[in-house]
């Protein structure tokens, strides 16, 4: 694409002028958006390397993940709860006699797991 444009520029002076104008805009924009000292990455580098050195592992990492991104975990928990409720409903609708007691016991287990 660049080669195409370069050969076109030789034959078409207007295109060449456009390209120069585009480059000038990009240059102006880059110059305008630069602030003094923003090329200094020493602090950034130090922060990243410090974080790598102090990276939490295992349970600490999981806790940090849950606290910083609670929504996916909450949705996963709600999904599991829904699955349990659905399974319980389907099983209880056909339950009679001893199996009903077994399902009640199963319900207790689910209750314990779900924290209710």
């Amino acid at each position: 694409m660049t080669h195409q444009k370069t050969s076109d520029q030789k034959t078409n002076p207007n295109l060449s002028a456009d390209v120069t104008a585009d480059e000038a805009i990009d240059r102006d924009l880059a110059a305008l958006l630069k602030t003094p000292g923003d090329e200094d990455v020493a602090l950034l580098s130090r922060s990243v390397l410090n974080q790598l050195a102090e990276a939490p592992s295992g349970a600490e990492h999981h806790l940090a993940e849950v606290l910083s991104e609670p929504l996916p975990w909450a949705m996963g928990f709600a999904g599991l709860m829904g699955l349990c409720v659905g399974t319980g409903y389907l099983l209880s609708s056909g339950a009679v006699g001893d199996s009903f007691l077994a399902l009640l016991a199963l319900g207790d287990v689910f209750g314990l797991l779900g924290g209710f």
């Binding site: 990455v41 950034l44 390397l49």
Partner: peptide
């Protein structure tokens, strides 16, 4: 090699930070 990460930051850190700021 962690030193390589520092090299990468030196190459692209400023640009990425500027991009994010905008």
């Amino acid at each position: 090699e962690r030193a390589a990460l520092a090299r990468l930051i030196a190459l692209y850190g400023a640009g990425i930070r500027r991009y994010a700021a905008q």
